[in-house]
Design a binder for these strands. Structure first.
Lengths: 339, 339
DNA sequence: TGAAAGGTTGGTAACGGTAACATCATTTCG
DNA sequence: CGAAATGATGTTACCGTTACCAACCTTTCA
């Protein structure tokens, strides 16, 4: 049973009076800072617990000019990729006293500005945000904040402070190489039409460049709007194959639509990977367990989160050039012919 | 190009000096509060923009005793269900000036305590947290905070202040009713073994009670540890059917493992829904596009988020009895025989 | 024309903590 | 045994903003 509570919120002073020591000493006890005798510590803790006192970080932060928050700004929570990055961040932040605060932009630059402004107004001790492309106002805010700023996911471009991620151009190129090595030649692409998804764009660019070096151009492409789902993958796969029946490979911009395409092809009796190969992107293990494992690229999401968090937390130094490059990993799966 | 910046962070005073008015007036302009002439407003905004001033909510919050944050405490981000709830919350909070701050507990009561304590120390203007079961310290903290506290997802139990959700007992019972009505009799259950997932437990209880009323008991059950995935669904389905080949229905505790089970059964050539029926729970539309649509119950995730947010934001009054009961909706899909 | 009313601006005192330093008691050690 | 080091506690001055009230300047209208 807690004590009855007046309407006035509790402050250090209440704990101080209840335990017969100064507010300063109470503060020291509650933060485990400085020397306090075991006896007073005990008195104070008992009093605090009895009253149900919860420290006020607003006041504390103002006084100390330090806030244990890390702003994390990501485009979306509705596919599996960013929650996994978050998992990495939060795991690595766990023993640092730092706490992530998440803001979602829905891939909108103006929302990114707004979210960033809002987060900075809390004076966090670091910022982690997705991508290298930001509006002018956003860059202006970040250029001189005097905090660690880590841009994640992508390293194809210039970082404001530090970037942690993979090269999506390279991921695209490597997938192209694997596909060509496996002997496929009439290749189609299915992806989302989101001008703000720069990583998908760069992946496709790297993919096409590599094809071009082998004298090959994409035989077909199909774009869609909105979120990715199995259903979307089915529809687009049907459409692209109706239009270009001669295709022997489909490169999807993510695993979810890739899986939809795979299911559709299997139902229609396509010979996979013999006559038709399929590949996605991300390497989400949620989809393990489909009739065949989809060929894909592991985007190193958890690692990206971890490394970014380590840098913000000061567990690991910012590299000289500001770039932490992780390697996208090709996962052969079952939907590409074995070399 | 922004102006060069000294190391000292900007304050209202800087903007005040740059625009030739008092700090108080600058504050009024930036908050759109009180009367300010158009001319000064313009001057101030220009100065603020030029300097790149970002208000300090720490100081502002302390002075005004108001903070535009809503604490949202959920068990997990790694399945689709809580992100969807979050989507509902954030959509409804969008035009209120309130901002959700998310804490994740990983289904651990002690982490819930810690996260709650931490969030309360920021003096948010409301709390939304999953479930009705909380530790004693957590209840003590919440009983007298003097803020709107909304417990979500579940309404089978006592709310601290307000609860918004569905009855999982009812959801389970209704699914049992549908299954029996469709003529299935030898029913197996596959679910996660998480003592802290009270909703899954209540669902199963409601399910079994309803079966019991018809004189039927579960013919088999299979539990697993850890996250849900298609793969897990496959394995457990294989196991339970190996053990009890006579089963004619499988009730899964969520759609993801249900989908895994479905894929496995289809591969093995089971006659679905003729000889074997399957059902999951949640109604995640991510999985639309499987070879058959899994029978399931829509848990009303987005609505729950919206209603909870509306109550916290004061857009909608707290109901007399403190309970906002939404109806779980049966989604027949293709994996149960039509009545 | 002068008082009232309303719009616009500024001064001052909080808000609830913490940093930095001061103070006093106790221990350590040459 | 006295000086210096160390431990334990308190005092004071902020941190950057907003609430509240006072002051001033117009405009309105009897």
């Amino acid at each position: 049973m807690t004590t009855k509570r007046t309407s006035r919120p509790l402050t250090l002073r209440d704990v101080s009076e209840a335990s017969g020591v100064s507010e300063m000493t109470v503060s020291r006890v509650l933060r485990n800072r400085g020397d306090v005798s075991a006896a007073t510590r005990e008195k104070v803790l008992t009093a605090a617990r009895t009253l149900g006192y919860v420290p006020n970080k607003i006041a504390g932060g103002l006084a100390s000019q330090r806030v244990n928050l890390v702003a994390v700004i990501i485009p979306s929570l509705s596919n599996m990729v960013f929650p996994e990055v978050l998992g990495g961040i939060s795991a690595e932040l766990d023993d640092t006293g730092l706490q992530p605060v998440v803001g979602v932009t829905n891939y909108s630059p103006s929302r990114e500005d707004a979210v960033l402004y809002d987060m900075l107004s809390w004076r966090p001790s670091g910022v982690i945000l997705a991508g290298l492309e930001h509006s002018l106002p956003a860059r202006a805010m970040l250029d001189n904040v005097g905090l660690p700023v880590v841009e994640i996911m992508d390293i194809d471009g210039d970082a404001i402070d530090t970037a942690v991620g993979i090269s999506h151009r390279r991921a695209g190129a490597e997938m192209a190489a694997e596909i060509l090595a496996a002997g496929y030649r009439r290749i189609g692409f299915i992806g989302t039409h989101m001008p703000e998804d720069h990583r998908a764009r760069k992946r496709l660019a790297g993919f096409e460049e590599h094809l071009a070096q082998a004298g090959i151009t994409l035989a077909a492409r199909e774009y869609y709007q909105g979120g990715s789902s199995l259903q979307k993958g089915r529809e687009l796969t049907e459409r692209i194959l109706a239009r270009e029946p001669e295709l022997d490979f489909l490169y999807f911009s993510n695993d979810m639509i890739g899986a939809g395409g795979l299911l559709w092809c299997l139902e229609k009796g396509y010979d996979i990977p013999g006559k038709l190969g399929l590949a996605g992107f991300n390497g989400v293990d949620l989809l393990d367990g489909l009739p065949m494992r989809l060929t894909t690229t592991d985007a190193r999401r958890v690692d990206i989160g971890r490394r970014a968090a380590r840098i913000v937390a000061g567990k690991e130094p910012r590299p000289e050039n500001g770039i932490v490059a992780l390697s996208p990993t090709f996962l052969p799966g079952d939907t590409i012919r074995k070399g």
